[in-house]
Design a protein around this nucleic acid. Structure first.
Lengths: 338, 338
DNA sequence: GCAGCGCTGGAAAGCGCTTTCCCGCCACGC
DNA sequence: GCGTGGCGGGAAAGCGCTTTCCAGCGCTGC
């Protein structure tokens, strides 16, 4: 049955030193401890298999080693890449990451933040997209305030939020550049599979895309909205096909949606890119294995996670920092000349 | 600057009750508290925005609300699906999941377990594959013991380990059934892209596959080993091609490897399935969008995560439980008659 | 020679919470 | 009437650790 776990006190007693000394040795405080005592403590700690109680440490130090990471769906490559970046940095810093998933329910974000606050997480990275849902947003804003007032840091990926550090991809600029590149291929009629209209990321990409088309003197695209998921893309593409649109080129605001859309087109016998060109956004790793290869706007997803984690971990000043990462248009086989 | 966080003591004082009473109200202890006191406490807690300090609670109760989850690479769909299942169950139970990634370094598994022990995690799900690396294994075994002796529970996915609860997919049976199905398509010469030989999962699938071929009276396959990743599959397929093997059907022990292999074949101008058939194992969600659709052995990955979390959370008896989940052969377009 | 300093070790006061133990009160039974 | 038991409330003892504060000691500098 559960053997009593080894405490610092036991180590100290066994080693014949005080609690204070043992603590100092095993945590490298600023204080010096003589060579022999130090060694004695280390040895007994080792022998007894001592592992410090992180809760007690957190309590005594009033700071924990937890870093929160909030995503909508860890199964989505977009999020799992960011997660990989965040965990790498966190683990290197000797911290532990707490994964929270919202399942795309805006209110969960605030709940999770509150939980993380309870755990006195030292920082949190919010990777979910910001919505325009007023209620959820203000609840979230309140939680963010509470969290930061408590001394925690918050960074957001892909969404500027009330005075938090942020990693913002060039959604607008990327969309715009992509539109120009596609116009450059000779396309004249465009369609966009937009995400839910309340998602800011989706709106930005769409707005950029429209601007790019305008730059090229092309009429605004038909826009079909759908969920920010593979199935959302599938459904939106089906809807588009049903609408008898004459578009020769489709932009899905997300690679994941583009994948769904491609499946829909394939199913309907529409050839890519002969009959219709298609492009996405993000450059998730799974794209490497789609056929035809999907044109997209590349975002350094893992790096974005790393940057966010970096921002949130090195305390920095009080004012919010913003790191912009540019998207790079990558044309592949899914888009052809028209 | 960091406003003092609200403590239970403040709530109690403000509400004009004792610490004990406040604690009882806000945590529903077994003890009764009178209606009006109770309500007063709840109201002031609400007003002050009180959030209990999880570290302090963990310390006082000697048990935390953390559940560990250890994976090799959260970016790999196999793991992210399992992670989704685990987090869902954990979050429903009001627990918080701590994500640890090993980057496929066996020794990291033990390190992470030790960290989780320090945090007094109440349970941990090990989703990484077991290796045959003796040193790492025994270190890990020691950590598992330490963890369970401390009162924590451990469950493994896809690997029977020293007295822990386990979710075991039918690796052997699945491989065998797949081999028979493929033999049924008329193939006579097979190749296998095996994972690193020290991974038990890879070995089991391979063994099952060989058995299935033997059942069908077919000669043993050529085996090429590679890393358990997309790139490993790519490299192994390249090696296979270079070897001028006459195989008409290739089995990659993992879908992710199969994806890499398909890329290699495509690159070399080998048509799938006309020139060569290929099958994988796992049925990761991304398969929905590969062309041609990959034949595979379906595993209910998310469900496996849920089951593992379920095992690890409802304390159960002392003896280790094992839940087997069957793999289901799914033949798709990547495998053709020969 | 002695005040003063820097340095190491230990005692002890918390950190915020849970829970035991005790106390006073009321209802009840004889 | 008083003894008993049950019940709601509070005081206080931890949980395992960090860190402040103090004591002792060997040096330096005048």
């Amino acid at each position: 049955m559960s053997a009593r776990q080894v405490t610092l006190a036991e180590v100290a007693k066994q080693a014949g030193v005080s609690l204070a000394t043992a603590s100092r040795v095993l945590n490298g405080s600023t204080r010096q401890v003589s060579e022999d005592l130090s060694e004695r403590v280390l040895r007994t700690a080792e022998e007894l298999g001592y592992v410090p109680n992180a809760s007690a440490q957190a309590l005594a130090r009033n700071s924990s080693s937890l870093v929160g990471l909030v995503v909508h769906d860890i199964t989505d490559p977009y999020f799992s890449c960011i997660a990989a970046g965040v965990t790498r940095v966190a683990e290197e810093a000797g911290l532990v990451v707490v994964l929270g998933t919202t399942g795309r329910r805006p209110e969960r974000e605030a709940e999770l933040l509150s939980t993380l606050r309870a755990h006195r997480a030292r920082a949190v990275v919010l990777a979910g997209s910001r919505t325009t849902d007023r209620a959820a947003q203000s609840r979230l804003a309140a939680e963010i305030d509470a969290f930061t007032e408590q001394g925690g840091r918050v960074a957001c990926v892909s969404q500027a939020k009330l005075g938090t550090d942020t990693v913002v991809p060039g959604n607008r600029a990327g969309g715009r550049a992509l539109a120009r590149a596609l116009a450059g291929l000779g396309h004249k009629k465009f369609a966009v599979l937009g995400g839910p209209s309340e998602l800011v990321v989706a709106r930005d990409r769409l707005a950029g895309f429209k601007a790019g088309l305008a730059d090229a003197g092309i009429a605004p695209p038909v826009v079909v909205n759908g969920a920010f998921t593979r199935d959302g893309g599938y459904a939106a593409a089906m809807e588009l096909l049903a609408s008898k649109s004459r578009a020769t080129c489709v932009f899905a605001v997300t690679d994941v949606m583009a994948m769904g859309a491609m499946a829909a087109l394939r199913e309907r016998g529409v050839r890519i890119p002969e009959d219709i060109s298609i492009a996405g956004f993000d450059d998730i790793p799974t794209l490497r294995d789609t056929v035809p290869a999907l044109s997209t706007v590349r975002l350094p997803l893992e790096e974005m996670g790393e940057i966010a984690a970096g921002l949130v971990l090195d305390a920095g000043g009080d004012e919010a920092r913003t790191v912009r990462v540019a998207g790079e248009v990558v044309l592949r086989a899914s888009t052809a000349h028209n």
